[in-house]
């Protein structure tokens, strides 16, 4: 009887802990979601009723529309470029031993250490100096740099998990190095590369700090437009657009999970 009680108690404790952590992780998003359906003109929590009017406003507000399109353009270019550079880097680091390899790995991890603020500020000054100001090129360059460590890690992990015997087998069967790359290595790296691309896309879509510096009205991404909006208005539109951005990113995550397996993408953090 005592043993039974102890099991029940420890199970109860375990699930309470899980519920607590889950609640803690989702509270900010939940608060914003609830506020977004409030009918009130002012930001209020908890909401006094239910209305979708702020969603309508968020979807029709021209600055948000423009910024969303900007964001998509920047994300498309930035994560693709990041994938290209990151894959090449990962291949280099995994396959070859060379002097300065350790230094290269350190440089690759540096965006995790340097604050986004500094990166954005640096690119702002550089862009001004090169007279390309706050153009798309500068925004994309910033986002590539910020997403590179994640993409590189993702491809690197896939390369590590690739059994070298597979490439040897292909070679043994008559495939030249280029054919091995095209028919065996690349197809098997594809999930890791796609995962890396998706992580980069999610990071790029929601990046704010660095983007604040390197974007202008013409090139601003959605998080920057949202910030500008909060500075001028105090209605729940901002909550609605937040909810939409969260939903969009969640859908991306779900797609990633469905086709690639989330574990594979999250493995970018595992050494």
């Amino acid at each position: 009887m005592n043993a039974w009680l102890a099991t029940r108690l420890s199970a109860g404790l375990f699930w309470s802990a899980v519920a607590l952590i889950l609640g803690y992780m989702t509270i900010p998003a939940l608060v914003v979601l609830m506020t977004s359906v409030s009918p009130s003109e002012l930001l209020e929590f908890p909401p006094s009723g239910f209305s979708l009017r702020w969603y309508e406003r968020a979807l029709t507000y021209p600055d948000f529309q423009g910024a969303f399109v900007n964001g998509l353009i920047v994300t498309a270019f930035a994560s693709s470029l990041s994938l290209l550079i990151g894959s090449a880097f990962a291949y280099l680091v995994e396959r070859y031993t060379f002097g300065g390899r350790v230094a290269l790995e350190a440089i690759l991890a540096s965006p995790l250490i340097v604050p986004h603020f500094t990166t954005g500020f640096g690119f702002l000054l550089l862009g001004a100096n090169l007279r390309i100001g706050q153009s798309y090129a500068v925004v994309v360059a910033t986002h590539v740099l910020l997403t590179l460590p994640f993409v590189t890690r993702s491809v690197y992990v896939s390369l590590r998990n690739l059994d070298p015997a597979l490439e040897r087998a292909a070679t043994n069967l008559g495939a030249s190095p280029l054919q091995v790359l095209r028919r065996v290595t690349l197809p098997l790296l594809l999930p890791g590369m796609a995962g890396g691309w998706l992580v980069a896309a999610m990071l790029s879509l929601t990046e704010f700090t660095a983007s604040l510096y390197v974007t202008a009205q013409r090139t601003q991404t959605l998080p920057v437009a949202m910030y500008t909006y909060v500075r001028e208005y105090t209605d729940p539109t901002i909550a609605a657009i937040s909810a939409l951005l969260i939903t969009f990113t969640t859908i991306l995550m779900l797609i990633a999970n469905r086709y690639l397996g989330l574990r594979r993408i999250l493995a970018i953090d595992a050494h």
């Binding site: 059994d163 015997a165 597979l166 040897r168 087998a169 292909a170 043994n172 065996v184």
Partner: peptide, 10 residues
């Protein structure tokens, strides 16, 4: 023609 220890099938 080589047969590998872990087969190395694609």
């Amino acid at each position: 023609g080589m047969v590998f220890q872990n087969y190395a099938l694609f």
